[in-house]
Design a protein around this nucleic acid. Structure first.
Lengths: 333, 333
DNA sequence: TTGTAGGCGTTATCAC
DNA sequence: GTGATAACGCCTACAA
C-alpha cells in the first residue's frame, strides 16, 4: 500500500495525495476529502524510510548516556524523551557504559543512523584529556551536539548545565557556618562536573581558612555496601570527620549505612549531604538532604535549545542554572 | 558523498561498491581493497534511510513503557537496550504514561516509523476489558509484539513474564507460616500482573484458612509520603495488621516510613515485603525483603525470543520464570 | 488546482 | 567477477 495505490483509488495523481498528506498548499476541499477517505479506507500510512530518504531526516534524536538505570540519568531520559516527543521527535536511546572506546563506537553508530542531533547526558562523556574528546568534535561536524551537564567549546556544540561548583561550595559553606569543620568529600569520578564539584569543595574550605587535607577528598566507586565498607576502613585508618558531602545520592545513602553500622547518630554527630535529589534521597532513613540540580529544567532547556538550533535561531552555546539544596533530615541547618 | 562518488573514485560500478560494503559475494581481493581504501579516504558512510527503503528495515525496535523514570522500568529499558544492541538493533524509546488514549496514539506513531517490532514493558499495557486491547492486536498484525510481564493471546504476540501469582503466594505463605495472620496487601493497580499478585495473596490466605477481609486489600497510588499518610489513616480507622505485602518497592518504603512514624518496630511488630527488588530496597532502613522478579532474565529472554521470531524459528508464545524472594531485614523468616 | 517527472541512495536481479 | 538497471516510496520543482 503506497502513494500510488491511493492515487489510483482516489483518481488523482500521487502529487495530490502527497499534498493532502502533508497538509500543504492548495488542494480543493473536495479532492482533499476524497483522498482522505480513501486513505482511511485502505488504512494507508506513509513510508517513513522513503520520506526520510527524500527529506534527509526521520525526526530522530540520539540520546546517549552511560547507564539508563541510574536513577538520575533515568530521570533525564524521561524528561528528554517527553520534550522531544512534544516537538515531534523520536528518541533513539544508547547506553554506552563508561569506557571511552565504547562511547566513540556508539556515537559513530548513532550518526550512521542519520539522527538529526545527539544529546549526551552527564559529564562522563567529556574527557579530561581534550584530545580524547575528538569523537564529540567529529560528531558536531555532522549534527548539533547537546551536552547535558557537560561543557565543551566548539561550533555546533551546546551545553546546558547546573552550577555544580557553586552548589557544592554552598553546601560545604552551610556546614562550615553551622560549626562543622571536618568535612569529608566523597565522589565517584573526576568527570567534567566531578571536577567542578571537587573544586567547589576546595574553594569553600579554603575560603573559610580550613586546611585542605588529601584524606578528606576520597574517590570511590562501588555498590552501596562496598562504599559503606570503604568508609568503615577510612575510620579504622584514623580519618575523623563530622560531615560527608557526596557527589551522588547513592554515595550519601552508603554514608548513612556507615553511620548506622558505627552507631553514629545523624545529624547530631554526622551530617550528610547527597547530590541529585533522586528518589533515593526519600527512601533512606533519615531522609537525605540533597542538592537538587534541576534535571527537569535542564532537559526542557536542552530540547528547547536544540529546537532553536534547528530553526537557525541565535542560540547561546552555554546555559547554566543554579542548584537548590533540599533540606531534609541529615543536616542540622 | 554517496555510493556513486565512491564507485567513480574507485573506478568500479556502484554494484561492486555495494558488494564490498555488505561483505557479500565474490569480489576480487584487489578491487575490494581498492574500494575500501577509497571509502576510508573519503570517510563515506552508507545512507541508512536509503538502505531502510530498500530493505524495509532500519534495524530498530520500539520500546514502550509508561514511565522510564520508574526504577523498575528503567532497569528493564537498560537491559533491553543492551540486548538489542548486541543483536544490532537500535531502540526507540517511547514513554506513554498510563492513559489508554496516549498508549494507543504512541503505538501507532511507533508503527508509522516502521520499527521492526515493539516491546511493551509492564502489564499496564494490558487492559482488563479486552476490547481495549485492540490497539495491541492491531499492532501485532504489522510487527511482532513482545509483552514483558503481560500476557495476551494472539498471533504474533509473545509474552515473557514472571510468575507473580506464585511469588506473592509464596511471600504471604512464608509470613503465615511464621505465625503472622493479619496481613495487609497494598497495591498500585489492577493491571494484568496486578491482578495476578492480588490473586496470589487471596489464594495464600484461603489456603491457610484465613478470612479474606476487604480491609486487608488496599489499592493506593501516590507519593511515598502520601502513601504513608494513607496507612496512618488506615490505622486510625482501626484496621490492624502485623505485616504489609506490597506490589511495588515504593509502597513498601512507604510502609517503613509509616512504621517509623508510629514507633512500630520492624520486623518484630510489623513485617514488610516489597516487590521488584529495586535499588530502593537497599536504600531504606531496615533494608527491605523484596520479591526479585528477574528483570534482567526477562529482558534477555524477550530479546532472544524476538530474534528467534525474526528467524522464523518456532517460538513459544508464552514464557514464564519463577521469582525469588530476597530476604533482608524487614521480615523475621 | 492538478499532473508529470526527476531525484533521494541503496540493494538486488540480471546479463555479460 | 563485474556492470547496467530496475525497484523501494516519497517529495517537489516545473508544466499544464
Amino acid at each position: 500500500m503506497n502513494i500510488y495505490d491511493i492515487s489510483k483509488a482516489a483518481g488523482v495523481s500521487i502529487a495530490t495525495v502527497s499534498r493532502v498528506i502533508n497538509g500543504s498548499s492548495s488542494v480543493t476541499e473536495k479532492t482533499k476529502q476524497k483522498v482522505l477517505s480513501v486513505i482511511e479506507e485502505y488504512g494507508y500510512t506513509p513510508n517513513a524510510f522513503a520520506r526520510g530518504l527524500g527529506l534527509n531526516t526521520m525526526q530522530t534524536i540520539g540520546i546517549m548516556c552511560p547507564d539508563s538505570s541510574d536513577p538520575y540519568l533515568a530521570d533525564a531520559i524521561y524528561y528528554l524523551e517527553r520534550e522531544l516527543r512534544q516537538n515531534n521527535y523520536d528518541s533513539i536511546l544508547c547506553c554506552t557504559g563508561y569506557q571511552l572506546s565504547t562511547k566513540e563506537k556508539y556515537l559513530k553508530l548513532l550518526l550512521s543512523k542519520r539522527v538529526d542531533a545527539v544529546i549526551l547526558i552527564g559529564s562522563n562523556f567529556i574527557e579530561a584529556n581534550d584530545k580524547n574528546n575528538k569523537y564529540i568534535y567529529d560528531a558536531s561536524k555532522e549534527v548539533p551536539v547537546i551536552l547535558l551537564n557537560g561543557y565543551l567549546e566548539g561550533a555546533n556544540i551546546y551545553s546546558t548545565s547546573c552550577d555544580d561548583y557553586q552548589a557544592v561550595y554552598d553546601a560545604v559553606s552551610s556546614l562550615i557556618n553551622s560549626g562543622i569543620h571536618k568535612i569529608l568529600y566523597l565522589f565517584h569520578s573526576l568527570s567534567y562536573s566531578g571536577i567542578k564539584k571537587l573544586n567547589g569543595y576546595k574553594a569553600a574550605m579554603t575560603a573559610h581558612n580550613l586546611e585542605l587535607k588529601e584524606e578528606y577528598m576520597q574517590q570511590f566507586s562501588g555498590t552501596i555496601h562496598e562504599t559503606k565498607g570503604f568508609l568503615l576502613k577510612l575510620r579504622e585508618d584514623g580519618v575523623e570527620f563530622d560531615a560527608i558531602v557526596t557527589s551522588d545520592d547513592s554515595l550519601a545513602v552508603s554514608a548513612i549505612k556507615y553511620a548506622k553500622a558505627c552507631n553514629i547518630s545523624i545529624p547530631s554527630q554526622l551530617s550528610i549531604i547527597g547530590y541529585n535529589n533522586s528518589i533515593m534521597a526519600e527512601c533512606c532513613e533519615p531522609e537525605l538532604t540533597s542538592v537538587d540540580n534541576k534535571v527537569e529544567t535542564l532537559c526542557i532547556q536542552s530540547v528547547s535549545t536544540l529546537m532553536r538550533v534547528f530553526e537557525n535561531s541565535n542560540v547561546p552555546a552555554k546555559t547554566m542554572f543554579s542548584a537548590d539544596i533540599v533540606k531534609r533530615a541529615t543536616t542540622r541547618f
